[in-house]
Amino acid sequence: MHTEKIYTEYKKFNAKKVFYILIFTIILGIIALGALLHGPSSIGFKNSFTALFKETGIASAIVWELRLPRIIMAILTGCGLSIAGTVFQAILKNPLASPYTLGIASGAGFGAVLAIIFGGSLYSEYLIAGSAFFFAMLSSLIILSIARLKDPSPETMILAGIAIMFLFSSLSSFFQYIGTMEQVQEIVFWFFGSLSKTGWKEISIVSVMIFVPIPFLIKSSWKLNLLATGDESAKALGVNTTKLRMQGMIFASLITSACICFTGVIGFVGLVSPHIGRMLVGSDHRFLIPTSALIGTILVLVADTFGRILWAPQVIPIGIVTSFIGVPFFFYLLIRRTRGYW
């Protein structure tokens, strides 16, 4: 083959990836606009549109205070969970890793359970979120310290994560067992995940916690590529694998905890979008991170919009809908897996 051709082929290959990112950005824009203008309330399409730019009373309130925050939160969590999932899969070298693999979700769940049952007079949405965030980070810190004590290998981290997951799940079950009916109901609802209670304040908190670590992860893209080829190779090519793995874990955990502390557990997005991304643009994290973030946001947004419209005025919790879409797709992936994981 002509050398010039190898070169142009690689360039074309990368141009294709940029093209995907552009296309998904446009799709996201269209879906977000659709979700903004359409909803279960009786204000029409046209009214919603004018309400965007003009104060029109009730329509404005619906668009600006209900729909828009919800859409932005859907984008934030979809983006955050997908990026965290991509990073976890890379640093744990495990295609089955997700933002929840290391027991982060059960940690967060336990935090929420504690706040709901023992919150007493302090009880508020923020207490639940704070407690969920604290225990989510705690579970990842425990795993980090175990990895530091023993060895920082993916296997150690995954096993420690599974142990933590069982610990927090059984603690949650125990407290649910002693809780009242109302409390248990609220706990169950929390575990479904929901975007219903989002306001601008939550959005600003979550955005800060997500957008501070993301640039670092994107900057490490090339090193993450090397990590996937094995620790030895990565080290021989100049990467401090232990440091990268620890940093990646802290930042990805931070993003995950920030996403789920207000919304509850939204399943499967973080597992599935990196895989769809890899199918489309390959494993170069410089392109994979943005692609899977876009796919994740689209998935969450579509799932939430379906959840709102399908059974209006009832809202089906987002965590349930994403799993409805996610699980069949996951099975499809497993069956399609002809060579290795693909």
Binding site: F13, A90, S283
Partner: peptide
């Protein structure tokens, strides 16, 4: 040997 858990092309490798 170099295990590759995720797909990469020869050029990328």
């Amino acid at each position: 040997s170099s295990p590759s858990k995720f797909p990469i092309t020869v050029f990328e490798a």
